[in-house]
Simulated assay, not measured.
Amino acid sequence: MKLYLTNIVCSILLAAILLTACKKENYPSRDTSGLKPPPPPPPPPPPDPKIVSFNPADALDNWETAGNKGAIEKPGAKEGLGWLKASIVSGEDYMHFIYRRPAALNAGLTKANGALKLWLYIGDISQIKADGQFELTSSGESDKNEYNWDLAPMLPNLKNGWNELTLSFSDAGESSGDGGPKLSAFNFFRLYLWTTGKTHADVALGLDDLRLVEK
Rank of each mutant, 00 (worst) to 15 (best):
111 K>F: 14
111 K>L: 13
111 K>H: 08
111 K>Q: 13
111 K>I: 09
112 A>W: 05
113 N>G: 10
113 N>F: 08
113 N>Y: 07
113 N>V: 12
113 N>R: 14
113 N>W: 02
114 G>T: 05
114 G>M: 11
114 G>K: 09
114 G>N: 11
114 G>Q: 12
115 A>R: 05
115 A>Y: 05
115 A>G: 05
115 A>I: 02
115 A>Q: 08
115 A>E: 06
115 A>L: 01
116 L>P: 03
116 L>M: 13
116 L>T: 04
116 L>R: 03
116 L>S: 06
116 L>Y: 06
117 K>D: 02
117 K>Y: 00
117 K>M: 08
117 K>N: 01
117 K>F: 00
117 K>V: 03
118 L>F: 07
118 L>S: 05
118 L>V: 09
118 L>K: 05
119 W>Q: 01
119 W>I: 04
119 W>K: 04
119 W>V: 02
119 W>T: 01
120 L>I: 04
120 L>C: 08
120 L>N: 02
120 L>A: 06
120 L>G: 03
121 Y>K: 01
121 Y>C: 03
121 Y>E: 00
121 Y>Q: 05
121 Y>R: 03
121 Y>H: 10
121 Y>P: 01
122 I>G: 01
122 I>H: 06
122 I>L: 14
122 I>W: 04
123 G>Q: 03
123 G>D: 07
123 G>R: 03
123 G>W: 04
123 G>N: 04
124 D>M: 09
124 D>N: 15
124 D>P: 09
125 I>K: 15
125 I>C: 04
125 I>P: 00
125 I>G: 02
125 I>R: 12
125 I>Q: 07
126 S>G: 09
126 S>W: 07
126 S>M: 08
126 S>R: 15
126 S>P: 04
126 S>Q: 12
126 S>I: 06
127 Q>F: 06
127 Q>A: 14
127 Q>Y: 10
128 I>G: 05
128 I>C: 03
128 I>K: 05
128 I>R: 00
129 K>T: 00
129 K>D: 14
129 K>A: 15
129 K>S: 13
129 K>L: 14
129 K>C: 06
130 A>Q: 15
130 A>Y: 11
130 A>C: 09
130 A>F: 11
130 A>T: 10
130 A>D: 13
130 A>M: 11
131 D>P: 00
131 D>W: 04
131 D>A: 12
131 D>K: 05
131 D>R: 01
132 G>S: 11
132 G>Q: 11
132 G>A: 09
132 G>E: 06
133 Q>P: 01
133 Q>N: 12
133 Q>W: 10
133 Q>R: 15
133 Q>Y: 12
134 F>G: 02
134 F>N: 00
134 F>E: 00
135 E>W: 00
135 E>T: 09
135 E>R: 13
135 E>I: 07
136 L>A: 08
136 L>M: 10
136 L>H: 06
136 L>Y: 08
136 L>R: 06
137 T>E: 13
137 T>I: 07
137 T>V: 08
137 T>P: 07
137 T>G: 15
137 T>F: 09
137 T>D: 14
137 T>R: 13
138 S>F: 11
138 S>N: 11
138 S>K: 13
138 S>Y: 10
139 S>V: 01
139 S>N: 03
140 G>C: 10
140 G>I: 08
140 G>Q: 08
140 G>H: 08
140 G>F: 12
140 G>T: 09
141 E>W: 11
141 E>L: 14
